[in-house]
Each structure stands twice: as structure tokens, then as C-alpha cells.
Amino acid sequence: KLLSSIEQACDICRLKKLKCSKEKPKCAKCLKNNWECRYSPKTKRSPLTRAHLTEVESRLERLE
């Protein structure tokens, strides 16, 4: 599967780190437990900047 097509777990399953069936409108866990089942939009991760990478590398060197 391509990364862009990976389905996201519902908010509660993601928060509780449960295996989500990803069914809509309610996944199996939410249906069974009568929880409100919501699927928040995916958040875009910002790409690493060179400055951040350099900072992490220098912190790693100090720890070694």
C-alpha cells in the first residue's frame, strides 16, 4: 500500500492505542462500548529543516 492511502484509526482508538477496525460511521470498538466515534483530519507533519537536523546532530555528539 502507498503511504498516502493508509487509513487512520478513529480518535479514541488512537488515543487509547487500540486496534481500530476503521469502519465508518462507527468502528467496532466504539460501537461495542457506545463511545462517540470521530475521525479527525490527518495532520500534516512539517518537513525537517536543516537547522533542526544540525541541532539534533550536535546534541547527539555531546551525549556520545
Rank of each mutant, 00 (worst) to 15 (best):
S46H: 03
S5W: 04
D11P: 03
L2Y: 14
E36R: 13
R14W: 00
C10I: 02
E55D: 13
E61Q: 12
H52P: 00
L31M: 14
Q8W: 11
C27T: 02
K24M: 15
L2T: 12
L60Y: 10
K29D: 07
L31K: 14
A9L: 02
Q8H: 11
L15G: 11
P41R: 01
P47D: 11
L63C: 08
C27R: 07
T49Q: 07
E61C: 13
K22P: 07
A28M: 14
K26G: 15
P41Q: 05
R62D: 02
S4G: 07
Y39R: 06
T49R: 00
R45F: 03
E64C: 10
C20E: 08
R14A: 08
K24S: 15
K22H: 09
W35C: 07
E64R: 10
K1T: 15
Q8I: 07
C30W: 08
C27F: 07
P47Q: 01
A28R: 15
Q8E: 03
R62I: 15
R38D: 10
R38V: 10
S4I: 12
P25M: 03
S40W: 05
K22V: 09
E57D: 08
K24I: 15
Y39K: 02
S5N: 09
R62V: 15
R50E: 05
S4N: 08
T43L: 13
P47S: 04
S46G: 03
Q8R: 05
S5M: 10
P41A: 09
L48I: 09
S4D: 14
S40E: 04
I6N: 10
T49K: 00
N34E: 14
K22S: 05
Q8G: 06
C20V: 01
K32E: 10
E7N: 10
K17C: 07
S5G: 09
L3Y: 12
K32V: 11
S21V: 03
K24Y: 15
L48Q: 04
D11S: 04
A51D: 05
E36P: 14
E23I: 09
R38K: 10
N34H: 11
K19V: 05
P41I: 03
E61K: 09
C13F: 01
C37M: 07
S40H: 00
S21H: 04
E64S: 12
R38W: 13
E64P: 08
L3A: 13
E61Y: 13
C20M: 08
E64G: 05
A51R: 10
